[in-house]
């Protein structure tokens, strides 16, 4: 089961990071977005080719107001 921001996702293994980002309603060229998979940064250039394993933990992050 792929976890996206701590929640179970219906995405099948082999889905790309790009697919995860798209499901969250984020445009591919949106600024201020970063993705980590299993504790490693996935650069934007690799979103379209990075395939997720069955146990992948995906974090999709963005800017938040903060000190």
């Amino acid at each position: 089961m792929i976890l996206v921001n701590g929640e179970h996702s219906e995405l099948a293994p082999g889905a790309t990071v790009q697919a995860v980002v798209a499901r969250l309603g984020i445009e591919p060229e949106a600024r201020g977005i970063a993705v980590a998979v299993d504790g490693e940064v996935v650069p934007r250039a690799a979103w379209g080719t990075f395939a997720l394993s069955d146990e992948a933990r995906v974090e999709v992050l963005t800017a938040m107001q903060g000190g």
């Binding site: 992050l61 800017a63 938040m64």
Partner: peptide
């Protein structure tokens, strides 16, 4: 600025 999960709460709608 801070970095937080997309969709983590109402505030991120404004992110």
């Amino acid at each position: 600025v801070a970095l937080r999960r997309v969709g983590s709460d109402a505030r991120s709608a404004r992110a």
